[in-house]
Design a protein around this nucleic acid. Sequence first.
DNA 1: TTATTAATTTTGGCTTACCAAAAAATTAAT
DNA 2: ATTAATTTTTTGGTAAGCCAAAATTAATAA
Lengths: 218, 218
Amino acid sequence: MQSETIENYLKTIYHISGGNASIVNNKQLADKLGVIPATVTEAVKKLHELKLVIYEKSYGTRLTAAGSKMALSIVRRHRIWETYLEKELGFGWDEVHEIAEELEHIKNDKLIKKLSEKLGHPNFDPHGDPIPDEKGKIQKSNFIKLSEARPKKNYKIMGVTDHSSAFLKYLEKHQLIIGASLSIKTIEQFDHSIVLFCKNKEVSISPKATECIIVQEA
Amino acid sequence: MQSETIENYLKTIYHISGGNASIVNNKQLADKLGVIPATVTEAVKKLHELKLVIYEKSYGTRLTAAGSKMALSIVRRHRIWETYLEKELGFGWDEVHEIAEELEHIKNDKLIKKLSEKLGHPNFDPHGDPIPDEKGKIQKSNFIKLSEARPKKNYKIMGVTDHSSAFLKYLEKHQLIIGASLSIKTIEQFDHSIVLFCKNKEVSISPKATECIIVQEA
DNA sequence: TTATTAATTTTGGCTTACCAAAAAATTAAT
DNA sequence: ATTAATTTTTTGGTAAGCCAAAATTAATAA
């Protein structure tokens, strides 16, 4: 099995399982990877042989310790590159994901070490996602989704879970950028949309969007 | 045909033909690419279909204008990365080639543009090789091999044609680094080894090494 | 010029990573 | 609990990129 294919599978399993080594199914993987489920069946069998996942027939797949370690290292490379592209090379936060998808497959520990060093060993990337350290450890935080925020409280935007250019541009338009402070005014009971103050403006955010914005109580 | 395979073939044809679009044969390609000649036969047929090379059966292969353009762009990416790794990230000149072999396949014009910009649009990489510009144009120079230098004249080291770590370390030991000035004392007639002064030291350089050192009359 | 050597091409085969369609198993809905 | 819908697996097939061995062609030397 090709190293890049392995990496893409492990990374995707990691993301779907939310970093918990919980079970993911073939359909989810197939959708994210842009292949049909039959292809996934083949692949997870091979990854099982390689002891990178535990695949149980007709049930699902989860990462082993070894697989998890590898996934974390890919995620680290991806996020270091995203940060580097933004901070050192002046790319926009909506451009970095795509380029990092390619750069993440270059395996050279010294390279990532140098990039991290130059950046002052950041713990979060431009989208607010945590960057695992060399050992795969993630700095955990009290981040919650905006959809879980409580009325009357104050929050700070820490990240997003949708990296599409369209969404990021939408956020910028409303000045909902990383680091911005906001306070929740009301939460509509009937559709769960949230009305908040940010930069002295009142904005109503749809439930779909509040699911994708990560905040921290401030 | 996969883009990375194509790129490796075009790049190799370019290098063997010395940038002249002259004919290269299967054996040479097979050796450089680490495959057997039969594999090369298959590949060059396909590249011919793609109009990237002209392949004449049992005779040889040369780049078309389109193939040459692509090769130049790969060479540019490679050399920009080598320069960036050395200048911006502090890698040694003997380390950069290997990493650039991987990085060169990332196709993102904006990325290369940014790197080049940050470096002040260099025309030569850490090994003294010219970096083609966005249009594929190479700054030509009056560089010659040290083996072609004349006695009593003064030269400046501009590059090397062997990028192996062993050779580069050997050069560093004798302080024969890029930019160093030297003068030719004598050229041994019987074996063509060259005795030169560099940094006030007299060194004798074997013909094998003088073939790999590029100098410019100073 | 013929014999020898070297390079090239052909042929048959392998593995990886995919797909399509059919069959089997699981899950959900009535 | 049975049907319907969904997911998973199996089975055959494909294209890329490689190799080994045999056959051909070209180049070199005697």
